[in-house]
Protein backbone atom coordinates (compact mmCIF):
# COMPACT_ATOMS: atom_id res chain seq x y z
CA UNK A 1 0.00 0.00 0.00
CA UNK A 2 3.06 2.24 0.15
CA UNK A 3 2.62 4.98 -2.37
CA UNK A 4 5.36 7.29 -3.49
CA UNK A 5 4.11 10.69 -2.47
CA UNK A 6 6.52 12.29 -4.89
CA UNK A 7 4.46 10.85 -7.68
CA UNK A 8 1.42 12.61 -6.42
CA UNK A 9 3.31 15.83 -5.94
CA UNK A 10 4.26 15.60 -9.54
CA UNK A 11 0.62 15.11 -10.45
CA UNK A 12 -0.48 18.02 -8.33
CA UNK A 13 1.89 20.41 -9.92
CA UNK A 14 1.01 18.82 -13.22
CA UNK A 15 -1.56 21.46 -14.04
CA UNK A 16 0.96 24.22 -13.59
CA UNK A 17 3.53 22.26 -15.49
CA UNK A 18 1.19 21.57 -18.41
CA UNK A 19 0.20 25.20 -18.53
CA UNK A 20 3.83 26.25 -18.56
CA UNK A 21 4.40 24.10 -21.62
CA UNK A 22 1.38 25.64 -23.30
CA UNK A 23 2.69 29.09 -22.43
CA UNK A 24 6.10 28.42 -23.87
CA UNK A 25 4.64 27.00 -27.06
CA UNK A 26 2.36 30.01 -27.39
CA UNK A 27 5.23 32.43 -26.98
CA UNK A 28 7.34 30.58 -29.50
CA UNK A 29 4.53 30.62 -32.03
CA UNK A 30 3.96 34.30 -31.32
CA UNK A 31 7.59 35.20 -31.86
CA UNK A 32 7.80 33.14 -35.03
CA UNK A 33 4.75 34.71 -36.55
CA UNK A 34 5.01 38.26 -35.44
CA UNK A 35 8.66 39.09 -35.43
CA UNK A 36 11.35 39.01 -38.08
CA UNK A 37 13.15 36.04 -36.65
CA UNK A 38 12.23 33.81 -39.56
CA UNK A 39 13.69 36.31 -41.89
CA UNK A 40 16.91 36.22 -40.02
CA UNK A 41 16.23 39.22 -37.84
CA UNK A 42 16.11 39.63 -34.11
CA UNK A 43 13.22 38.15 -32.21
CA UNK A 44 13.09 41.26 -30.10
CA UNK A 45 12.65 43.88 -32.73
CA UNK A 46 9.00 43.84 -33.46
CA UNK A 47 6.00 41.67 -32.80
CA UNK A 48 5.51 39.81 -29.59
CA UNK A 49 8.80 40.55 -27.90
CA UNK A 50 8.92 44.15 -28.95
CA UNK A 51 9.10 46.46 -25.98
CA UNK A 52 5.88 48.17 -26.93
CA UNK A 53 3.96 44.94 -26.99
CA UNK A 54 5.51 43.47 -23.89
CA UNK A 55 4.94 46.61 -21.93
CA UNK A 56 1.31 46.81 -22.94
CA UNK A 57 0.82 43.13 -22.13
CA UNK A 58 2.35 43.53 -18.71
CA UNK A 59 0.24 46.58 -17.94
CA UNK A 60 -2.89 44.73 -18.95
CA UNK A 61 -2.04 42.06 -16.45
CA UNK A 62 -2.36 44.33 -13.46
CA UNK A 63 -6.07 44.18 -12.65
CA UNK A 64 -6.65 40.43 -13.03
CA UNK A 65 -3.28 39.67 -11.42
CA UNK A 66 -4.15 41.32 -8.14
CA UNK A 67 -7.60 39.77 -8.12
CA UNK A 68 -5.99 36.40 -8.75
CA UNK A 69 -4.19 36.32 -5.42
CA UNK A 70 -7.18 37.26 -3.33
CA UNK A 71 -9.68 35.10 -5.18
CA UNK A 72 -7.30 32.16 -5.21
CA UNK A 73 -6.84 32.17 -1.46
CA UNK A 74 -10.53 32.70 -0.85
CA UNK A 75 -11.49 29.84 -3.13
CA UNK A 76 -9.02 27.49 -1.48
CA UNK A 77 -10.62 28.24 1.88
CA UNK A 78 -14.01 27.40 0.47
CA UNK A 79 -15.38 30.86 -0.18
CA UNK A 80 -15.78 33.22 -3.11
CA UNK A 81 -16.21 36.91 -3.77
CA UNK A 82 -17.72 37.79 -7.11
CA UNK A 83 -17.84 41.50 -6.39
CA UNK A 84 -14.13 42.26 -6.67
CA UNK A 85 -14.49 44.19 -9.92
CA UNK A 86 -17.16 46.41 -8.39
CA UNK A 87 -15.04 46.82 -5.26
CA UNK A 88 -12.13 48.03 -7.35
CA UNK A 89 -14.42 50.47 -9.13
CA UNK A 90 -15.66 51.79 -5.82
CA UNK A 91 -12.23 52.20 -4.25
CA UNK A 92 -11.01 53.89 -7.42
CA UNK A 93 -13.96 56.26 -7.37
CA UNK A 94 -13.35 57.02 -3.72
CA UNK A 95 -9.70 57.77 -4.42
CA UNK A 96 -10.33 60.00 -7.41
CA UNK A 97 -13.06 61.99 -5.73
CA UNK A 98 -11.07 62.43 -2.53
CA UNK A 99 -8.08 63.59 -4.54
CA UNK A 100 -10.24 66.07 -6.34
CA UNK A 101 -12.17 67.40 -3.40
CA UNK A 102 -9.63 67.40 -0.60
CA UNK A 103 -6.06 68.49 -0.14
CA UNK A 104 -4.84 65.33 1.48
CA UNK A 105 -1.55 63.95 0.21
CA UNK A 106 -2.01 61.10 -2.25
CA UNK A 107 -0.57 58.43 0.01
CA UNK A 108 -3.06 59.26 2.75
CA UNK A 109 -5.95 58.88 0.36
CA UNK A 110 -4.33 55.72 -0.94
CA UNK A 111 -4.28 54.20 2.50
CA UNK A 112 -7.83 55.35 3.15
CA UNK A 113 -8.85 53.58 -0.03
CA UNK A 114 -7.28 50.38 1.21
CA UNK A 115 -9.02 50.81 4.53
CA UNK A 116 -12.30 51.12 2.70
CA UNK A 117 -11.52 47.85 0.97
CA UNK A 118 -10.76 46.20 4.27
CA UNK A 119 -14.12 47.35 5.63
CA UNK A 120 -15.83 45.85 2.59
CA UNK A 121 -14.03 42.58 3.18
CA UNK A 122 -15.10 42.63 6.80
CA UNK A 123 -18.68 43.29 5.76
CA UNK A 124 -18.62 40.31 3.46
CA UNK A 125 -17.26 38.04 6.13
CA UNK A 126 -20.01 39.13 8.51
CA UNK A 127 -22.62 38.38 5.88
CA UNK A 128 -21.22 34.96 5.22
CA UNK A 129 -20.41 33.94 8.78
CA UNK A 130 -22.96 35.62 10.99
CA UNK A 131 -25.88 35.93 8.62
CA UNK A 132 -25.27 32.69 6.78
CA UNK A 133 -25.64 34.29 3.38
CA UNK A 134 -24.31 32.09 0.59
CA UNK A 135 -21.18 33.96 -0.53
CA UNK A 136 -21.93 33.38 -4.18
CA UNK A 137 -25.26 35.15 -4.11
CA UNK A 138 -24.48 37.80 -1.52
CA UNK A 139 -21.43 39.04 -3.39
CA UNK A 140 -23.38 39.18 -6.65
CA UNK A 141 -25.86 41.43 -4.88
CA UNK A 142 -23.24 43.63 -3.27
CA UNK A 143 -21.64 44.00 -6.68
CA UNK A 144 -24.59 46.11 -7.78
CA UNK A 145 -24.45 48.10 -4.57
CA UNK A 146 -20.80 49.02 -5.02
CA UNK A 147 -21.28 49.83 -8.70
CA UNK A 148 -24.15 52.10 -7.77
CA UNK A 149 -22.22 53.91 -5.06
CA UNK A 150 -19.27 54.35 -7.39
CA UNK A 151 -21.53 55.71 -10.10
CA UNK A 152 -23.05 58.14 -7.65
CA UNK A 153 -19.64 59.30 -6.44
CA UNK A 154 -18.35 59.79 -9.93
CA UNK A 155 -21.60 61.18 -11.22
CA UNK A 156 -21.31 58.57 -13.95
CA UNK A 157 -18.36 60.18 -15.68
CA UNK A 158 -14.65 59.73 -15.49
CA UNK A 159 -12.86 61.70 -12.83
CA UNK A 160 -9.27 62.46 -13.65
CA UNK A 161 -6.40 62.23 -11.27
CA UNK A 162 -3.43 64.43 -11.82
CA UNK A 163 -1.19 64.07 -8.81
CA UNK A 164 2.26 63.67 -10.34
CA UNK A 165 3.70 61.60 -7.53
CA UNK A 166 0.82 59.16 -7.64
CA UNK A 167 0.90 58.88 -11.42
CA UNK A 168 4.59 58.12 -11.33
CA UNK A 169 3.84 54.79 -9.65
CA UNK A 170 2.50 53.29 -12.82
CA UNK A 171 5.23 54.92 -14.86
CA UNK A 172 7.99 53.27 -12.87
CA UNK A 173 9.43 50.40 -14.77
CA UNK A 174 12.30 47.99 -14.54
CA UNK A 175 14.64 48.03 -17.52
CA UNK A 176 12.12 50.37 -19.12
CA UNK A 177 10.03 47.30 -19.73
CA UNK A 178 8.51 45.69 -16.69
CA UNK A 179 6.12 47.93 -14.79
CA UNK A 180 6.57 48.16 -11.05
CA UNK A 181 2.89 47.59 -10.60
CA UNK A 182 2.97 44.25 -12.40
CA UNK A 183 6.02 43.23 -10.40
CA UNK A 184 4.25 44.00 -7.18
CA UNK A 185 1.34 41.91 -8.38
CA UNK A 186 3.55 38.93 -9.16
CA UNK A 187 5.32 39.38 -5.86
CA UNK A 188 2.02 39.24 -4.04
CA UNK A 189 1.15 36.01 -5.84
CA UNK A 190 4.39 34.46 -4.64
CA UNK A 191 3.87 35.77 -1.13
CA UNK A 192 0.45 34.14 -1.09
CA UNK A 193 1.93 30.90 -2.35
CA UNK A 194 4.53 31.06 0.38
CA UNK A 195 1.91 31.66 3.03
CA UNK A 196 -0.18 28.80 1.70
CA UNK A 197 2.57 26.24 1.62
CA UNK A 198 4.94 27.27 4.37
CA UNK A 199 2.92 28.83 7.13
CA UNK A 200 0.50 27.18 9.48
CA UNK A 201 -2.08 29.81 8.64
CA UNK A 202 -1.85 28.79 5.02
CA UNK A 203 -2.23 25.08 5.78
CA UNK A 204 -5.22 25.94 7.92
CA UNK A 205 -6.74 27.72 4.91
CA UNK A 206 -6.65 24.41 3.05
CA UNK A 207 -8.09 22.66 6.06
CA UNK A 208 -10.96 25.14 6.31
CA UNK A 209 -11.75 24.69 2.66
CA UNK A 210 -11.44 20.94 2.81
CA UNK A 211 -13.61 20.22 5.83
CA UNK A 212 -14.72 23.14 7.92
CA UNK A 213 -16.33 21.01 10.60
CA UNK A 214 -13.25 18.86 11.12
CA UNK A 215 -11.07 21.95 11.24
CA UNK A 216 -13.22 23.52 13.94
CA UNK A 217 -13.23 20.32 15.92
CA UNK A 218 -9.45 20.35 15.78
CA UNK A 219 -9.41 23.84 17.22
CA UNK A 220 -8.78 25.84 14.07
CA UNK A 221 -10.54 29.19 14.18
CA UNK A 222 -12.16 28.99 10.79
CA UNK A 223 -14.12 32.19 11.28
CA UNK A 224 -10.96 34.14 11.83
CA UNK A 225 -9.38 32.62 8.73
CA UNK A 226 -12.42 33.42 6.63
CA UNK A 227 -12.57 37.00 7.86
CA UNK A 228 -8.88 37.57 7.24
CA UNK A 229 -9.08 36.13 3.74
CA UNK A 230 -12.08 38.24 2.75
CA UNK A 231 -10.32 41.35 3.97
CA UNK A 232 -7.03 40.44 2.33
CA UNK A 233 -8.78 39.74 -0.96
CA UNK A 234 -10.52 43.12 -0.90
CA UNK A 235 -7.37 45.00 0.02
CA UNK A 236 -5.23 43.32 -2.64
CA UNK A 237 -7.96 43.96 -5.19
CA UNK A 238 -8.15 47.61 -4.20
CA UNK A 239 -4.38 47.88 -4.46
CA UNK A 240 -4.54 46.59 -8.01
CA UNK A 241 -7.40 48.94 -8.74
CA UNK A 242 -5.52 51.96 -7.49
CA UNK A 243 -2.50 50.99 -9.54
CA UNK A 244 -4.87 50.82 -12.50
CA UNK A 245 -5.98 54.37 -11.75
CA UNK A 246 -2.36 55.42 -11.75
CA UNK A 247 -2.04 53.76 -15.14
CA UNK A 248 -5.15 55.20 -16.76
CA UNK A 249 -4.95 58.51 -14.90
CA UNK A 250 -8.64 58.38 -14.06
CA UNK A 251 -11.37 56.61 -12.23
CA UNK A 252 -13.91 55.20 -14.64
CA UNK A 253 -17.34 54.03 -13.48
CA UNK A 254 -17.61 51.21 -15.98
CA UNK A 255 -14.18 50.33 -17.32
CA UNK A 256 -13.27 47.79 -14.69
CA UNK A 257 -16.58 45.99 -14.55
CA UNK A 258 -17.03 45.87 -18.30
CA UNK A 259 -13.77 44.07 -18.97
CA UNK A 260 -14.68 41.61 -16.22
CA UNK A 261 -11.20 41.03 -14.82
CA UNK A 262 -12.80 39.17 -11.96
CA UNK A 263 -14.07 36.54 -14.37
CA UNK A 264 -10.67 36.36 -16.03
CA UNK A 265 -9.04 35.97 -12.65
CA UNK A 266 -11.58 33.37 -11.54
CA UNK A 267 -11.13 31.40 -14.75
CA UNK A 268 -7.38 31.54 -14.31
CA UNK A 269 -7.68 30.36 -10.73
CA UNK A 270 -9.76 27.37 -11.73
CA UNK A 271 -7.73 26.58 -14.81
CA UNK A 272 -4.71 26.70 -12.57
CA UNK A 273 -5.90 23.81 -10.48
CA UNK A 274 -7.90 25.30 -7.64
CA UNK A 275 -11.13 23.37 -7.31
CA UNK A 276 -14.37 25.27 -7.13
CA UNK A 277 -15.11 23.47 -3.90
CA UNK A 278 -11.87 24.54 -2.29
CA UNK A 279 -9.37 22.63 -0.23
CA UNK A 280 -6.79 22.13 -2.92
CA UNK A 281 -4.53 23.96 -5.34
CA UNK A 282 -1.84 26.59 -5.19
CA UNK A 283 -1.09 30.01 -6.61
CA UNK A 284 1.54 29.21 -9.17
CA UNK A 285 -0.81 27.27 -11.43
CA UNK A 286 -3.31 30.12 -11.59
CA UNK A 287 -0.52 32.60 -12.27
CA UNK A 288 0.68 30.63 -15.26
CA UNK A 289 -2.91 30.14 -16.38
CA UNK A 290 -3.46 33.89 -16.30
CA UNK A 291 -0.29 34.40 -18.33
CA UNK A 292 -1.50 31.86 -20.84
CA UNK A 293 -4.85 33.60 -21.16
CA UNK A 294 -3.31 37.05 -21.55
CA UNK A 295 -0.57 35.94 -23.89
CA UNK A 296 -3.08 34.15 -26.06
CA UNK A 297 -5.15 37.30 -26.16
CA UNK A 298 -2.09 39.29 -27.07
CA UNK A 299 -0.86 36.83 -29.66
CA UNK A 300 -4.16 36.82 -31.45
CA UNK A 301 -4.22 40.61 -31.48
CA UNK A 302 -0.66 40.82 -32.75
CA UNK A 303 -1.36 38.32 -35.50
CA UNK A 304 -4.18 40.59 -36.48
CA UNK A 305 -7.01 38.21 -35.86
CA UNK A 306 -10.34 39.83 -35.36
CA UNK A 307 -10.86 40.56 -31.65
CA UNK A 308 -13.84 38.29 -31.35
CA UNK A 309 -11.68 35.29 -32.00
CA UNK A 310 -9.93 36.21 -28.75
CA UNK A 311 -13.07 35.71 -26.81
CA UNK A 312 -13.68 32.46 -28.63
CA UNK A 313 -10.15 31.27 -27.98
CA UNK A 314 -10.23 32.00 -24.29
CA UNK A 315 -13.44 30.06 -23.89
CA UNK A 316 -12.23 27.21 -26.02
CA UNK A 317 -8.99 27.10 -24.06
CA UNK A 318 -10.88 26.87 -20.80
CA UNK A 319 -12.90 23.96 -22.09
CA UNK A 320 -9.86 22.24 -23.55
CA UNK A 321 -8.03 22.60 -20.26
CA UNK A 322 -10.97 21.06 -18.46
CA UNK A 323 -11.03 18.15 -20.91
CA UNK A 324 -7.34 17.53 -20.40
CA UNK A 325 -7.81 17.70 -16.67
CA UNK A 326 -10.65 15.20 -16.87
CA UNK A 327 -8.57 12.80 -18.92
CA UNK A 328 -5.71 13.10 -16.46
CA UNK A 329 -8.05 12.42 -13.57
CA UNK A 330 -9.39 9.34 -15.37
CA UNK A 331 -5.86 8.05 -15.83
CA UNK A 332 -5.15 8.68 -12.16
CA UNK A 333 -8.29 6.86 -11.14
CA UNK A 334 -7.41 3.82 -13.23
CA UNK A 335 -3.92 3.81 -11.75
CA UNK A 336 -5.38 3.92 -8.27
CA UNK A 337 -7.68 1.02 -9.02
CA UNK A 338 -4.77 -0.99 -10.31
CA UNK A 339 -2.71 -0.22 -7.24
CA UNK A 340 -5.44 -1.45 -4.96
CA UNK A 341 -5.49 -4.92 -6.53
Amino acid sequence: MQKKSNAFKRFASGTGFKLLIVLIILIIIAVLISSDVLKGGSPFGKGFFSSINLRSLLYKLVLPLFMLSGLGMLLISGNIDLSVAAQATLCNAFFAVMMRDTNLPWWVVFILGLVLAAVIGLLHSIMVLKLNFPAFIATIGMSSVYTGIAGWLLNLTNVNVSDKAFLSIAKTTLFDLIPLTTLVGVLIVFICQFVLSRTRFGRNCFATGGNKFASRLAGINTNRITTILFMVCSVITALGGLFYVSQTKKADPTAVTSSAPNMTALSAVMLGGVAFSGGTGGMVGPLIALLVMQVLDNVLTVIGVKPYWNTFAVGALLILALIMDYLAAEKRRKALLAAVQ
Partner: peptide, 26 residues
Protein backbone atom coordinates in the same frame (compact mmCIF):
# COMPACT_ATOMS: atom_id res chain seq x y z
CA UNK B 1 -14.57 10.50 9.89
CA UNK B 2 -13.53 14.11 10.11
CA UNK B 3 -10.67 14.11 7.66
CA UNK B 4 -9.58 16.54 5.01
CA UNK B 5 -9.16 14.51 1.84
CA UNK B 6 -6.72 16.72 -0.06
CA UNK B 7 -4.42 17.26 2.87
CA UNK B 8 -1.73 14.76 3.67
CA UNK B 9 -1.99 12.14 6.39
CA UNK B 10 0.41 14.08 8.58
CA UNK B 11 -1.48 17.33 8.24
CA UNK B 12 -4.66 15.57 9.20
CA UNK B 13 -3.15 13.90 12.22
CA UNK B 14 -1.68 17.15 13.46
CA UNK B 15 -4.61 19.26 12.33
CA UNK B 16 -4.66 22.53 14.21
CA UNK B 17 -1.34 21.80 15.84
CA UNK B 18 1.13 21.98 13.04
CA UNK B 19 4.69 22.31 14.31
CA UNK B 20 6.56 25.48 13.62
CA UNK B 21 10.18 26.32 13.08
CA UNK B 22 12.04 28.94 15.04
CA UNK B 23 11.02 31.57 12.51
CA UNK B 24 7.36 30.71 12.88
CA UNK B 25 7.01 28.87 9.62
CA UNK B 26 5.46 25.50 9.11
Amino acid sequence: RQLIPYLSVMENIFLGDLPKTKSGLF
